[in-house]
Deep mutational scan, measured.
Amino acid sequence: DELEKRVKKIARKLNLSLDQVEEWLKRNNNDELVEAVKRLKKK
């Protein structure tokens, strides 16, 4: 979905793993995208 695409884009842009992106999003209080990261990690 759109949020998952955004997460992947962030990960690529910042050259981070999904775990690192998740931490980064949590620090930025971006719950919506944190949920998207969790969905991606399950895939």
Rank of each mutant, 00 (worst) to 15 (best):
R39S: 07
K9N: 14
K13Y: 12
L25V: 03
L33S: 01
K42E: 14
E2V: 12
K9A: 15
K9F: 07
N30V: 13
K26W: 05
K43G: 06
A11C: 15
K5G: 07
K41F: 07
D31S: 11
A36W: 05
K13N: 13
K43E: 09
V37C: 15
V21L: 15
V7T: 01
K43C: 10
E4L: 07
E35D: 08
E2M: 09
R6D: 04
L25K: 00
D31K: 12
R39M: 03
W24N: 01
E35W: 01
D1A: 11
L33V: 02
I10P: 01
L14K: 04
L33P: 01
L25R: 00
S17D: 13
K26Q: 11
E32Y: 09
S17Y: 08
S17E: 06
K26I: 10
R27E: 14
E2D: 12
E23A: 07
K9V: 13
K9S: 14
L16P: 00
K26A: 11
V7M: 06
E23G: 04
S17M: 08
K38L: 02
V7P: 00
D31Y: 14
K42S: 13
N30P: 04
K13R: 13
S17F: 08
K41W: 05
Q20C: 13
E2H: 09
N15Q: 09
N29Q: 10
V37G: 01
R27D: 12
K5D: 14
K43S: 09
K9W: 08
S17G: 06
N29H: 12
L25F: 14
L14Q: 04
W24R: 04
E4T: 06
R6N: 06
K43F: 10
R6V: 14
E32Q: 10
D1K: 09
L25W: 02
A36V: 09
K42M: 07
N29W: 10
K5C: 15
R6L: 15
K41T: 05
E23Y: 04
K42G: 09
N29T: 09
E2R: 10
K43M: 10
N30M: 15
V7N: 01
D19C: 11
E2W: 11
N30H: 15
K9T: 13
N28R: 11
